[in-house]
């Protein structure tokens, strides 16, 4: 305990951290009427961080090409020490993240928190929901199982219902006519970099807006 205090004190004397921590964490005032349902947004963020962490771990062994993808996931699950745990946390948390985001949105909708001045909180939240779903969908293809293959096939067929440009969108998403190694590479890039980076940017906006307007007080 003392050593922690000494180390923290060293930084605190130089960067004056205590007021910052008190203002934002330990002495931050929140409306008294907030219940446990106000946790879902924070839980979504927590699960996102878990996903980033376990995802980086999985990247150490995963190989994103059709010949090796399935083998490498099997390798992680059965040969890498604790790999089954990391892989399963990543899979289960993906589902949990969607559940948390939906619960969060349900609360916001029920209490009508989306009203002025918080309209853009809701808009950025809807974007975050979409990004979360894309993240889950692209991740589903990566183990390259029969389920993921057909899941991706059906999923990428959805835009074909759009008139005129639908077929082109499908071809663009699949990087060709059918689900192939090109699709896998594209989904991999989306899943590990493009979407997480975008989602982080939108999260930053979302949180900055909440800080600016304050947490909504029930009437």
């Amino acid at each position: 305990m003392r050593i922690v205090k000494t180390i923290f004190g060293w930084f605190d004397r130089r960067y004056n951290l205590t007021p910052l921590i008190e203002k934002n964490v330990t002495k931050k005032r929140v409306p008294k009427t907030l219940g446990w349902a106000a946790c879902f947004g924070g839980l979504s963020l927590l699960i996102f961080l878990v996903q980033v962490f376990t995802g980086v771990l999985l990247l150490m062994y995963y190989k994103p090409d059709p010949a090796n993808a399935w083998d490498s996931v099997t390798f992680i699950k059965s040969n890498v020490s604790m790999g089954w745990l990391v892989q399963r946390i990543h899979t289960v948390s993906a589902n949990l993240m969607i559940v948390m985001v939906l619960m969060h949105m349900a609360r916001i909708a029920y209490y009508k928190v989306y009203r002025s001045p918080r309209e853009l909180h809701w808009v950025s939240g809807v974007v975050l929901l979409m990004l979360t779903l894309i993240l889950a969908f692209t991740g589903y293809l990566l183990p390259w199982t029969q389920l993921s293959y057909w899941g991706a096939k059906v999923g990428t067929e959805i835009p074909s219902a759009i008139p005129v440009i639908g077929e082109d969108i499908v071809r663009w998403v699949r990087r060709g006519e059918a689900i192939s190694g090109e699709t896998l590479g594209f989904f991999f890039a989306l899943h590990i970099w493009i979407i997480p980076a975008t989602i982080s940017a939108f999260m930053a906006m979302h949180f900055a807006m909440i800080r600016r307007t304050g947490i909504s007080r029930p009437l």
């Binding site: 771990l57 040969n79 020490s81 604790m82 790999g83 745990l85 990391v86």
Partner: peptide
């Protein structure tokens, strides 16, 4: 778990 995952040696597997 993290340490044992990271230090798992593929050559032995």
């Amino acid at each position: 778990p993290v340490a044992s995952f990271v230090t798992s040696q593929p050559s032995r597997i």
